[in-house]
Design a protein around this nucleic acid. Sequence first.
DNA 1: GCACGGTTATTGAACGATCGCTAGGACGGA
DNA 2: TCCGTCCTAGCGATCGTTCAATAACCGTGC
Lengths: 201, 201
Amino acid sequence: MRAAKGAMPGAGRQVILDSAIRNMNHRGYHGTSMRDIARDADITVASIYHHFKSKQEILQDIMTRALHDAFAMTRSALLRSGGSSAEQLRAVVRAWVIFHTTRQSDALVGATELRSLDDEGRRLVVALRDEQESVFREIIDRGVEDGVFTTALPLDASRAIIHMGQSVCTWWRSDGPLTPEELAERYAELALAMVQPVDGR
Amino acid sequence: MRAAKGAMPGAGRQVILDSAIRNMNHRGYHGTSMRDIARDADITVASIYHHFKSKQEILQDIMTRALHDAFAMTRSALLRSGGSSAEQLRAVVRAWVIFHTTRQSDALVGATELRSLDDEGRRLVVALRDEQESVFREIIDRGVEDGVFTTALPLDASRAIIHMGQSVCTWWRSDGPLTPEELAERYAELALAMVQPVDGR
DNA sequence: GCACGGTTATTGAACGATCGCTAGGACGGA
DNA sequence: TCCGTCCTAGCGATCGTTCAATAACCGTGC
């Protein structure tokens, strides 16, 4: 036995999820077999089916977890931020980028495997994604209403900001020149410039 | 027989490529079988292997074509544009967005299937991608040198602009409210704002 | 301290389906 | 008669999934 079993309920699931995330990160959902996941988690294929009822359920679990955590991080950053629209946008973009670096693997799966979900899972994930989009959109809309952002394209700007942050998980490397915090700061700067704040900053 | 055969050399290849693009657009490379491609192209599996030596070669062909065409479109837009850095950036972003809408399916495959390529194909595609990145980077760098762009983050800005344009192929719909040209214009505006031109426009 | 029944976790082996790919021949136009 | 194109048929490998059997753990009665 690998460890005390009753002591950590759900630990078996997590080992499998971690392995699945690693594998799908490299070869995608359809490119990853249950045998790949089992080998990397150091268990047998049949054992996986004690914790998950199908490969599809594993993907759904990974994606809903990832989107939920991303939503929680940005929401929490928003609540902890100052009251100005500029500070709120900065805070949310920072959290968004930090999520897509520190949780790079799950984020990549969450961003690219929508098409691999069945109808039920897709509905769930799309709903979470819409909630996430509204976090950015509402901040920018309010900034425009209050006259502190002067962009004529608030909706397009929010979409662009979301996607430029999301794409970070496709190229950032932990052994590269930038820490998650440094990159987050830069993207916060770029995002703010895109909505054209009144004082140029 | 479907059509005069000798009259259109390479037509067989194109039918297969179109089918492969449609299929991989929905379910990805590993989620698309040779039988799927054959069925949609209205031929048999064995027939595909007369035109392509492997499934891998089909993917490589799709991706290198897509990246090459995108590079050609942005390069050509740059040459046809005015001399100012702002006009050049606008022109290239417009072309970039128009490519990712009018060639949405190939662009999506090109953007998401890097991991499905073998080593040789990946080297090829990465080289093309680097060339593409340099088109954006050089325009922004020159704008900063000349003092018409005031951003402190030219490299990050170019990456952000590339990715926010690329992501268009993941959500734009031809039956949606925006034509490729309208969306391209908006993204050109957003990209320009991000590099903070001196006169605010 | 310890045997015991019940629950949970894990296993090897195998199922039918589908995978990428190929051999060998049929067909039609030059 | 070639040559390019397409076919039927099938190869061995791998796919997701299942099942019956085994192993580990737990609270309980003694």
